[in-house]
Amino acid sequence: MSPFEHLSVLISIIIGLGVTHLLASLHRLVQARDRVKLHWLPLLWAVLLFISQVEWWWASFEWRSRVEWNFFYFLFILQSPVALYLAAAFVLPDVEAGESYDLKQYYFATRRWLFLAIAMSPAVDAVRRAEQAGSITDFGAVSNAVSAVLVGSMAFTQKLWYHALVTLAVGALFLAFIVSSALELR
């Protein structure tokens, strides 16, 4: 077993837990639909987080050829899947029997934790990409840093228009990144 194969197990477990949490939360919301006032922002972020976790797991395959690993680098790498798991845990409420939920109210009440957790993943990835490229001006590093700042800024405002604008912009940029990566346009 290669070092990557060994280390990827823990990465996969953490990503798997995040995906499981998102899907279970969505399932509970559907079951409690008569007691839930829906709002598009947390639902869109749940979709974006699902895709982010799958994309992060998919992209981690590039490390299969990395021969040398050390504990501290691995801890550094683990910060992104851990942040994505935490974001998955914050994005939708834990639905309990008999309770009513307003997703817009919940979204803004948890925005600090949610968006600081989401921002941590591209921030860590920006540092990793800059280190791998040997330059802080690497396009991947810069785009991740910009994403981290945009998403992180959402933790500090309750303006609906700002959340809508940044969510749609980040979602569009993320979709463009995935399409360009899939088509190997970068």
Rank of each mutant, 00 (worst) to 15 (best):
T20E: 00
R28P: 00
L75R: 12
V54R: 06
F90P: 00
W45Q: 02
A88D: 03
D94C: 12
L41C: 12
A32L: 00
V36D: 05
L44W: 07
T20M: 11
F90I: 01
T20A: 15
E62S: 11
V95D: 06
S80Y: 12
V95C: 08
F90L: 09
I77F: 15
D94I: 14
A89G: 03
W69M: 09
A46H: 03
P42C: 05
R66K: 15
L86K: 00
L22V: 04
A24K: 12
Y73Q: 11
N70S: 08
F50G: 11
L29Y: 12
E68P: 07
V30A: 14
L75S: 13
V95I: 14
L10E: 06
A89D: 10
S65L: 06
S12C: 01
N70E: 03
H21D: 04
H21I: 11
V47K: 09
A89E: 10
R33N: 14
V19H: 11
P93T: 09
H27W: 04
L26S: 08
L17T: 10
K37H: 05
L26C: 05
E55D: 09
I13E: 03
W57C: 01
D94M: 08
R33S: 14
P81Y: 03
L26G: 05
I14A: 06
R28T: 02
Q79L: 15
L92A: 11
D34W: 08
L84F: 15
S12R: 01
L22Y: 12
W40S: 06
K37F: 00
L38M: 03
H21M: 02
A88C: 12
H27Y: 09
W69F: 15
L43M: 14
L23F: 13
